[in-house]
Each structure stands twice: as structure tokens, then as C-alpha cells.
Nucleic acid binder design. Structure first.
Lengths: 219, 219
DNA sequence: GTCTGTTTCAAACGAACGTTTGAATTAATG
DNA sequence: CATTAATTCAAACGTTCGTTTGAAACAGAC
């Protein structure tokens, strides 16, 4: 069955082109040319361009979200009645997105850029990201809340959004704009950035909320 | 001179459409239809669509960046030899972007979304944002460094990027996706978010860098 | 080998886009 | 008022896009 070959080829090239040029600018003609398949194959296999984008996205986001839940489950099982340490929660959320089990570091970065695009670019894909996200969001919200009972639920939600912003900001900026690189190589940089983000976000979560509560806690 | 009227009309509508639909999807035909001007007027006054986008962007970013510098100057003059308090630096950076002196809160949010788009969408506008940004970046980097001498320059730069990510994350997400609104009204929400971000980012900047230094400080 | 359903292919369709053109209109100048 | 420059306008240009079409190539089943 050669059908699967074609599907995979299209998906591979599409995610590459979207990461590189963006959703709107990555045309089907570019994709099929690089993939060596016929133009009509996209609509045959995926129905439409939107269907292709959705397929590209789903292929990666589902394993990542599953891994997030899996890690959080393990942490909570280990902690028992105790709340899970803050850094561990953050790590279980961020790590699956940063260390997707991809052979090629180049491709890993490609996927990260893809997620950044999805998050930022089109209305539809943005909606998709958030919908795909809502159950995960609630799950982690509860975990954060238990670890930081001082914070109001609304404040926890805000700080989760800040965490997302921090994460996406590292995903969307093309490498050539990075003024301050920590290293030349790519994959160790990701490792470093990952720990940087955890330290930054964890401190942000622990920030004193006095004064913010009064303003932001009526719900 | 009716020429200025036309220019302004185009700029106003363009920034509205870009904020609403994005750079790629906001077509010149949409813009001129809503603005009540001729299609060719855009190319006459701005040369090209890219020229229009650039004009839309520059119209707002320049005053904001000037205000940022102005506030930082004032803070440093006041502090004398002392380093400027961390929260003050962050505030002088964020506040001008959040409280542009715009009458209409609706338009304020529109501009914020516009910046989010510029930051995330097309390669060209992204490049523009970063170029426009580099002098500001260096200026604030020095201020942060003076206040937090424990951190390496590279670490300061990273955390500034996290700050940017946090800021942009609040700019780019359409209101209909916000699950946890703190209030129904729009403009007080912005005030609250603003203080939330400062508290979060300040804590992030102060995060313990032990262990990160060794990994991230070879430069 | 023949038949049946699946997959590929070249070609074209219709729509939307940014841009250009050249005439018409308006404003400014002497 | 006449002349010149600046601005607006309707119309069209040339591309590119996502999608559709119908025939050709291919697959596996009998």
C-alpha cells in the first residue's frame, strides 16, 4: 500500500514548510513539489489544506500531551497526599514539548517552530491549539493550585498563561534573530533554555501575590 | 490637503484589520473597502502593502519606545549611582506598551494584538520588530545587569526574552479564547494583567541562577 | 487475465491577491 | 482664468492560490 508513503511524505514536508515559512505562506504547490507528489494528492488524502494542517499538528501534539499527563500522574502518585513540588509540575509540562523523541535536532526545532506558528498565526489553528489544550490546562491547573494554595484560582490561571508565553516565545523566534546565543550547537542550547525557563517560571509562580489578590481575585 | 486624510484613514483601518485578521489575511481590498478609499491609494501613498504595514507599525512603536527610554532615563537619574529597582525597570518597559494614550480601550487592545501579530507572523515584520528593538534591548539589558550583577549577561538576555514572551502572550491571544477572565470589562483587566506580569517577571528575574550559570555562562 | 476499487496524474477552474495604468478629478500657483 | 502638480478613480494585469476534474496507472481478489 503506497498510499501511506504518500501521506507521510506530505506530512513531513508540510510540517517543514509550515515551520519555515508559516501557515499562510506555505503553499500546497511548494509542499507537493518538495515532496515529489501530485498536487491533487493533498486534497485526496487530507480533504483540504486545513485538513492537512490539522493532521500535521495532531501528529505531534497528541503524544506530547499524553506524555504530559503521564508524567503528572506519576508525580502525583509518588507524592501521595503531598503536593507535587512546583518545579516538577513545570518540568512535566515543558519537557515533553522540548524533548520530543525526534532523532534529528533540526527537526525538533522545526516542530517547536511549528507549534509557535500554530499558536500565533491563524485563527483556526489557534482555536485548535486552545481546544486541544483545555483538558490539559485544567489538569495542570489543579496541580499548581494544590502546590500553591495561597494563590487564587484566577491567579494560577494567569501564571499558567505566562508560562505558556515564555515557552512559546522560545519556540517562535527564528534562530537568526537571536542576539545572545549561549552556544553554537543547537540541541545543547535547548537543554539550557529548558532549565532556564523552569527556573524563571517557578520563581514567577512563587511571586508574592499580596496586592494582586485584592485586585484580581473577585470571581 | 486631503491627502493626509486618506493616509490616516488607510492607516487606521489597516491597523484594525491586521489586528483582527492578521497580516496575511488582511487584504488591501478589505482595507480600502472599509476605509472608503480607492484601491490604488494604498500603493500611491505607501508604495506597497509592505510599506503600509511598516507605516502602521512605526506609527505606534516609536512613541512607545521613546517613552520606554524616557522612563528609564528618569529612573536612572533619580537613582544616581544606585541601581534602579527591578520592578521599576520592568514597569518602565511594559507600561508604555500597555497604556498607550489611546482614548478607546478597544483600540488599545487592537494595537496590542497588532504588535503580537507583528512579532509572530511574517518573517519581514518579525525582523522589523527585532531591528526596531535592538537599541532598546541593549539599553534595558544594561539596566537589568546593573540591578542584578549576580547574573551573567547571557542570563539577563534570556530572562529579558522570557519577559518579552510573557508580554506578547498577553497580546496575541484573542479575547474569546480567554478561559479565565478576571473581569468582564476590558480596560481594568489590562491594569490587573499589567501588575500580574510585573510581579511574575520580577520574580523570574530574581530566580536563583545557581546551576544555570555553569551550563549557560560560557560565552 | 479480468475485474474492481484505490491511488496518481496533468490540466484546468474560479477566485483572490498586490500591483499598474492612464484618464479624470481636485487643489495649488501665477 | 489658465496652467501645473497632486490626488483619486475605474479598470485591468499578471500571479498565485486551493480546489476540482476525469482519465490513466496501479493494486489486490477472484
Amino acid at each position: 500500500m503506497s498510499s501511506e508513503k504518500t501521506r507521510k511524505k506530505i506530512l513531513d514536508v508540510a510540517e517543514q514548510m509550515i515551520a519555515e515559512h508559516g501557515i499562510g505562506r506555505a503553499s500546497l504547490r511548494m509542499i507537493v513539489a518538495k515532496a515529489g507528489v501530485n498536487l491533487a494528492a493533498v486534497n485526496y488524502h487530507f480533504g483540504s489544506k486545513q485538513g492537512l494542517i490539522l493532521a500535521v499538528f495532531k501528529r505531534h501534539i497528541d503524544p506530547i500531551n499524553n506524555e504530559r499527563i503521564r508524567r503528572l500522574d506519576a508525580l502525583e502518585a509518588e507524592a501521595g497526599e503531598q503536593p507535587v513540588p512546583l518545579e516538577k509540575i513545570i518540568e512535566s509540562f515543558l519537557l515533553p514539548a522540548f524533548q520530543m523523541k525526534l532523532k534529528d535536532p533540526k527537526q525538533r526545532q522545526r516542530i517547536m517552530r511549528l507549534f509557535g506558528r500554530m499558536h500565533a498565526e491563524s485563527r483556526e489553528s489557534q482555536k485548535l491549539v486552545f481546544e486541544e489544550f483545555s483538558t490539559i490546562f485544567q489538569r495542570f491547573h489543579a496541580a499548581f493550585q494544590k502546590t500553591l494554595p495561597i494563590l487564587t484560582p484566577a491567579l494560577v490561571a494567569w501564571r499558567m498563561r505566562f508560562m505558556l508565553g515564555t515557552m512559546f516565545s522560545m519556540m517562535i523566534v527564528p534562530p537568526e534573530f537571536e542576539k545572545f546565543k549561549l552556544s553554537e550547537d543547537d540541541s545543547p542550547e535547548l537543554e539550557v533554555v529548558f532549565h532556564q525557563i523552569i527556573a524563571f517560571v517557578a520563581a514567577g509562580f512563587r511571586a508574592d501575590a499580596t496586592g494582586l489578590e485584592r485586585k484580581g481575585a473577585e470571581k
